[in-house]
Simulated assay, not measured.
Amino acid sequence: MVTLRVGRSVARWRVWSTSASVVVTEPATLATARELVEAELSEVERACSRFRDDAELTRAERAGRPVPVSPLLAELVGAALDAAERSGGDVDPTLGNDLARLGYDRDIAQVRPDGPAVLPVRRVASWRDVSLADGVLTVPRGVRLDLGATAKALTADRCARLVRDRLGTGVLVELGGDIATAGPAPDGGWTIRVRDRPTDPPATVRVTAGTAMATSSTASRSWRRGGQLIHHVLDPRTGMPAPRVWRSVTVCADRCVVANTHSTAALVRGADAVIPLTRAGVAARLVDDQGRVHVLGGWPS
């Protein structure tokens, strides 16, 4: 998912094996806006990257006991636990070991393209076993957290607010398809092109100031095991990739982390996703495994 606005007020680069974009309504602020976002991304990576031995989260997991953590890591873990509760456990951050077992134990660009088949195992932990209170985090011994379902989206929210507050400009921040906006929008709103993969059906929409959007996908971040194509969105009940009912789900909300919770949960729920999305009252666009598009909740035009 990329913005369509072009020119000097847009900066794009690669980070975390995905895209990053910053769009500002005041072109003179662009260079500083990018610096602010890049610094924030570095802080988040040091706090919770699953692929860094020196990450604060890794150290807390290894302790196997209550550990005081930084306000940033507490916010990131708190968002993951909130998403788990909001989704009834369908978005669960305790899947780090399961992802590693499936081969996703390093940056996606370095994951081996194929390997032996992987069978389901009995999961022994869930998000309810993780405790966070008053800045003290307790992760059961042997459990590894993966905050990927929420950390990127929360970071987009944080970056957009940071740029708005520091520079007084309207801003759109995109991190791998997770989009947050803050401050005034351009005339006519933010114009966004929605498409997960080059072969997927595209859509161009306009959204108002303060709107966030997230896309979750079973097509992106895929690799093979035992000759079968698997992906990174796991069903917490099995620790295995969710059935590929939907190629992608895009959701609009007032915060990107909320939109991402709904979009990720929809992939996990598969054919049962439509009713929860409707009840949540969010605008959503679902692309099924045949490439057909389904829209819900007043999807913007």
Rank of each mutant, 00 (worst) to 15 (best):
V2L: 13
L4G: 14
V6R: 13
V6G: 00
S9C: 12
V10R: 15
A11E: 12
R14H: 14
R14F: 13
V15T: 15
W16I: 06
V24W: 06
E26I: 00
P27F: 11
P27L: 13
A28F: 13
A28W: 13
L30A: 10
L30W: 06
A31K: 12
A33L: 08
V37T: 12
L41Q: 14
E43M: 09
E43T: 10
V44Y: 04
E45F: 10
A47P: 04
A47G: 05
S49V: 02
R50S: 00
F51V: 01
D53R: 09
D53W: 08
A55K: 01
G64H: 00
V67S: 02
P68E: 05
P68G: 03
P71D: 04
L76T: 08
V77A: 04
V77N: 03
V77F: 04
A79G: 07
E85M: 00
E85D: 10
S87W: 05
D90L: 14
T94F: 00
G103Y: 04
Y104C: 04
V111P: 05
D114M: 08
D114G: 09
P116W: 06
P116G: 09
A117H: 14
L119M: 10
R123E: 02
V124L: 11
A125Y: 01
R128S: 05
A133D: 14
G135T: 07
G135M: 09
V136Q: 01
L137E: 01
T138V: 04
P140H: 02
V143D: 02
R144Q: 04
L147V: 03
L147N: 01
G148H: 00
T150V: 15
A151V: 15
K152W: 09
D157C: 09
R161G: 04
L167M: 08
G168T: 07
T169L: 05
G170Y: 09
V171T: 10
L172E: 12
V173S: 03
E174Y: 02
L175W: 07
L175E: 07
G177N: 10
G177Q: 09
D178F: 04
G183M: 10
G183A: 06
P186I: 10
T191F: 03
T191V: 15
I192Q: 08
R193M: 14
V194C: 15
T199S: 14
V205R: 05
R206P: 06
T208K: 13
T208H: 14
G210I: 09
G210H: 06
G210R: 04
M213S: 09
A214P: 03
S216Y: 03
S217V: 11
S222F: 01
W223G: 03
L229W: 07
V233Y: 02
D235M: 05
P236L: 07
R237A: 15
M240H: 03
P241R: 02
R244K: 15
V245G: 09
R247H: 15
S248A: 15
R255C: 05
V257F: 09
V257M: 00
T261A: 12
H262F: 14
A266P: 11
L267W: 07
V268R: 06
G270V: 12
G270D: 12
A271P: 11
A273V: 13
I275E: 14
L277H: 11
A280W: 11
A283I: 10
A283F: 09
A284H: 11
R285C: 11
D289T: 15
G298F: 11
S301I: 05
